[in-house]
Nucleic acid binder design. Structure first.
Lengths: 128, 128
DNA sequence: CCGCATCCTTCTTGATACTG
DNA sequence: CAGTATCAAGAAGGATGCGG
């Protein structure tokens, strides 16, 4: 992981977890894989706006951290599938309360994954 | 908040929450204020290594987001205290499971806040 | 003591083109 | 299809000095 701290250890568990999910697209990857396994191209389309370089880099980091499993079918044309490991699923579970908090307290968050009202509001906190 | 997305809304609640706690020292600030209110200088010493500029910037962002409360006593010499708002406390609560996950699955995380065994390990995931 | 202003370095991300 | 290489841009963080 590129953002991994090298100098010393972490200060607390959240600090450490933030290092694993710190990439711009990391949680979106986890969220997509939560539903089902995805191929590389599927993920790229699901995470609209991500570039191949960044997606590959994030996937590599998540794989190194044991969060996602990469399965290369060794076919032609190439087929590679990414899925969550048990550790990845446990991370998603630990992330759930934070997601609830965000949906409850921040404007501009869609209520449910995949569809629904995409808020166009100025992303201001509700309960401020 | 500097990192606030301007183009469109968030993709999910975690995405949005990450935008609030995304700063390098944000969760450490929350963690310090969880225990008790801190003066600016106290915070600076508690977060060893942070610079005044960055600390002030993060505090301002957290204040704008309704996470921390800033109380200026208007004295000379200046005295300002920072504390968590109810929203800030609820954010900390939502962060707790993530902290547990980090402590359980990442090496180099001290078991409890404030003291204890600071791991010097290579920060590799345990349960990979 | 609290905090801002300026300048600068590093890290992260993005655009584009190319390969097996 | 699934990536890698190279180049470039932008944001976050840090160093230092000044002001109320």
């Amino acid at each position: 992981m590129v953002t991994r701290r090298g100098a010393d250890a972490y200060h607390c568990g959240i600090d450490a977890a933030m290092d694993v999910i710190g990439g711009k697209w990391k949680v979106l990857i986890l969220w997509a894989l939560e539903e089902r396994a995805h191929r590389f191209g599927e993920l790229r389309r699901a995470l609209d706006g991500v570039t191949e370089k960044v997606l590959a880099s994030h996937l590599r980091e998540l794989e190194d951290d044991g969060i996602v499993h990469r399965e290369d079918f060794g076919e032609v044309p190439p087929r590679v599938e990414y899925s969550l490991t048990p550790l990845g699923r446990s991370l998603n579970d630990a992330l759930a309360p934070l997601g609830d908090w965000g949906r409850a307290n921040i404007k501009g968050v869609p209520p449910e994954p995949g569809e629904g009202a995409r808020g166009r509001d100025p992303r201001r906190l509700v309960g401020g």
